[in-house]
């Protein structure tokens, strides 16, 4: 409590130094928050494309449910495939009706019998597409094999979308890491300078405390607490600015990306995501302020 009081009065005595430290840290952690959300969103986009049912095996008309179940089990055990689901004729009609809901005339004229039942799944890697399709075509109960990439994009184009997404994510991660590291380095130096200045102004006090038997930890504590306060305020400001920005732009983001879940749609999950970012940033900032203050104090004591 005594150290907190000392730290707080030090901050009040030099408000501009404190503001400089807090703002530099706020900018750093604002950018960090934005990049964290960007990395999360791009991961979600990639995951969306990768986990969409990419291959549909349309089954022959008179296929029994036992044989279908056997093939489904076989596909489920295949390590190259994931999210294997069976779509019955009725379910296929339902999907069709949903897709044509804006034009009821189209769905009125169809019955379940015209839709074949199917087994749908996605691939662990799109590179497996050719061999999996070839193998499926040899199955007796399979009438036709459809690849969603063919519809609209073509085989090559869906692969290239995923590849391009992977590249973008790589650049976001690499560029973001370099950018954030540079900002963290700058924040660290600003903290060092400000704490160094604080040590210079407190030199007499440090000498007196030293003479009356204060341990280095006792002398260092208010400085460390001060650095922690800067970090926590900086993190909170940067994080809150990012949260407000994201909340403000959420409607536009959702309408632009449509069904692609770039951000969690329910508020609780969104806040949970931001909570995780906050916890991570506080841990980083605490390490930054602890190392910064300890380095600055030991440098100042060496100069004594």
């Amino acid at each position: 409590m005594l150290h907190l009081k000392t730290a707080w009065s030090n901050i009040r005595r030099s408000p501009f130094q404190a503001l400089a430290a807090v703002f530099v840290l706020a900018v750093t952690f604002f950018v960090t928050s934005i990049l964290s959300i960007l990395v999360y969103s791009s991961g979600q986009v990639l995951n969306y494309f990768e986990t969409r049912p990419q291959v549909i095996a349309f089954l022959k008309e008179d296929t029994s449910s036992e044989v279908t179940a056997t093939l489904q089990e076989k596909l489920k055990k295949d390590p190259r495939l994931k999210a294997v689901t069976y779509v019955s004729k009725e379910k296929a009609l339902e999907i069709y009706k949903k897709a044509t809901s804006d034009n009821p005339l189209l769905s009125e004229l169809v019955s379940p019998s015209i839709f074949p039942a199917s087994l749908e799944f996605s691939l662990v890697e799109l590179g497996f597409a050719d061999e999996v399709i070839n193998e499926l075509e040899k199955e007796e109960i399979v009438d036709q094999v459809g690849f969603t990439g063919v519809v609209g994009f073509g085989k090559e184009s869906i692969q290239s979308i995923v590849d391009r997404l992977r590249n973008i994510i790589f650049y976001i991660k690499a560029g973001g890491t370099i950018f954030v590291a540079t900002l963290l380095g700058t924040s660290f130096l600003v903290l060092l300078v400000i704490i160094g200045m604080r040590m210079t102004t407190r030199r007499t006090e440090v000498e007196i405390l030293d003479l009356i038997g204060a341990t280095p930890g006792f002398i260092r504590s208010p400085i460390v607490i001060e650095a922690i306060l800067y970090s926590v305020f900086g993190v909170f400001l940067g994080w809150a600015a990012c949260l407000i920005l994201v909340l403000y732009s959420t409607p536009s983001i959702f309408s632009y990306f449509g069904e692609i879940p770039v951000l969690p749609r329910d508020t609780l999950s969104l806040l949970r995501l931001f909570g995780l970012v906050l916890v991570g940033e506080i841990l980083v900032s605490l390490s930054l302020s602890l190392v910064g203050s300890v380095v600055a104090v030991s440098r100042a004591r060496r100069r004594k």
């Binding site: 006090e205 000498e207 007196i208 003479l211 009356i212 038997g213």
Partner: peptide, 22 residues
């Protein structure tokens, strides 16, 4: 690391008082 312990057993009165002015 044991010097603070020694100093805590010694009370010092300085000519220039060495009080914390703030």
């Amino acid at each position: 690391r044991k010097i603070p312990g020694l100093r805590q057993q010694i009370g010092v009165v300085f000519q220039d008082f060495k009080l914390l002015t703030e």
